[in-house]
Write a protein that binds this DNA or RNA. Structure first.
Length: 277
DNA sequence: TTCCAGGCGTATC
DNA sequence: GATACGCATGGA
């Protein structure tokens, strides 16, 4: 074992096959099963928990033992260049949680699930996934995405779907969302929607750009900006967050959420869905 | 059987 | 701008 100090936020060490990380404010169950990502599955294990999933087409199995995380069959280079970023390990979640906890409702939500992080997911995967998510439930969203990956040999880039039509996508059983997916492929492939430009846009500008796609409205756009562009000031409001807003924030969000509304949203979303607020 | 799910497009006023 | 309704599918 060869311990290396990487920076203030986490330590890691490597051995022959694995990278072991010590880090706070990360819980795999809370982060991977809080409705932001749909391609992670928990495996039976001797650790506290083990999950397997993907970033793009790159697979990972990762285990948690309290504040230790074992990235199985992962090289140091792969960990640093991919997974440390994906799990947002360089962000100061202690400071984030402290700020949000100035509000009493958020304090309860953060304390209920202090290990939630906002993953840095792939933009195109988020776009497709959250188009599928509309008027749908999480188990079924996972099913449709899983069938898409089966059909395409991994989660497809949008460019790989250029020749797709309704018949090709019929095994997904995505219902009325199929035509939205096709419109997304069309507008992204043609450049009508400027995906790479969205990263440097404001949330309002990015929302307007994404709403050019049929099937993308306010909520889906905000999810894509938050989870696919890591714009923490994007605040998606679905049926659950509507309840949160009506019950706790009828006059708007508290000042402590300014600029990090999306992070606040994720703690609140998880808390209300699990009956903690 | 009916209701609901990380909504949105369309019609109508 | 606001409100009402339909929409594919499947689990509760």
């Amino acid at each position: 074992m060869n311990p290396i100090r990487y920076d203030a936020m986490f330590d890691y060490s490597t051995d022959k096959n694995d990278v072991t990380v010590r880090c706070d404010h990360l819980d795999l169950r809370q982060t991977l099963d809080c409705g932001q990502a749909f391609r992670w599955a928990e495996l039976p294990s001797d650790y506290d928990c083990t999950f397997t999933g993907f970033y793009k087409k790159k697979p990972l199995t990762v285990s948690q033992d309290k504040d230790r995380f074992i990235f199985h069959n992962t090289s140091e280079d792969e960990f640093l260049s991919c997974w440390a970023d994906y799990f947002d390990l360089n962000e100061d979640y202690a400071a984030l949680a402290a700020r949000l906890s100035e509000d009493s409702t958020l304090a309860a939500a953060v304390s209920f699930a202090p290990g939630i992080r906002i993953l840095r997911q792939d933009f195109e995967e988020c776009l497709i996934s959250f188009i599928i998510s509309q008027n749908n439930n999480i188990p079924r969203i996972k099913g449709i995405i899983s069938r898409l990956c089966e059909l395409c040999g991994g989660f497809p880039d949008i460019s790989e779907l250029r020749s797709a039509d309704e018949e090709f996508l019929s095994p997904l059983r995505a219902g009325f969302r199929t035509k939205y997916l096709l419109d997304c492929v069309e507008k992204v492939s043609s450049g009508d929607v400027d995906c790479s430009g969205i990263f440097s846009m404001s949330v309002d500008e990015g929302t307007a750009e994404l709403k050019k796609i049929k099937g993308v409205g306010e909520k889906v756009a905000k999810c894509v900006l938050l989870f696919g562009c890591h714009k923490l000031d994007a605040y998606p409001v679905d049926v659950w967050m509507k309840r949160v807003n009506e019950r706790f924030y009828p006059d708007g969000l508290p000042e402590c959420t300014r600029g990090i509304e999306g992070a606040a949203q994720q703690y609140l979303f998880y808390a209300i869905r699990n009956g903690a607020i």
